[in-house]
């Protein structure tokens, strides 16, 4: 106990800037690319940016809730990857393409 708690070695703002940049790269990927797989990758990038934020703030506020939450984000990311890949497989089987702008059957 006796030691005084050390200050956070990395300022919490840095985590926020990094996470914002990574998140916007993910958003740009979703908006720009046509390939369904790259869009799924971009979603993973965005979820990782959120994880960086959560871990940084868990360290900043000196508690464990943020780190616990990251586990749930990872679980949801795994579920999302599984369902997303299943949808990609089904789409590819039926339409022979993975370019998202060609999936416009429900367009009015």
């Amino acid at each position: 106990m006796g030691t005084t708690p050390a200050e956070m070695p990395i300022p919490v703002d840095w985590y926020l800037y990094l996470s914002a940049a990574l998140f916007m790269i993910g958003v740009a990927g979703v908006l720009i690319r046509r390939n369904l797989f790259i869009i799924l990758f971009s979603i993973e990038l965005m979820l990782n940016a959120v994880n960086i934020n959560l871990v940084g703030f868990a360290r900043y506020h000196e508690n464990m809730v943020g780190q616990n939450f990251v586990i749930f984000v990872m679980a949801i990311a795994a579920a999302e990857a599984a369902v997303g890949l299943a949808i990609a497989t089904a789409l590819f089987r039926n339409r022979r393409t993975l370019m998202v702008d060609l999936f416009d059957r429900m367009k009015g």
């Binding site: 030691t3 708690p5 050390a6 956070m8 900043y60 506020h61 000196e62 508690n63 464990m64």
Partner: peptide, 9 residues
């Protein structure tokens, strides 16, 4: 910081 006290130490 909320300083909940769960520091690395």
């Amino acid at each position: 910081s909320a300083k909940n006290g769960i520091t690395p130490e």
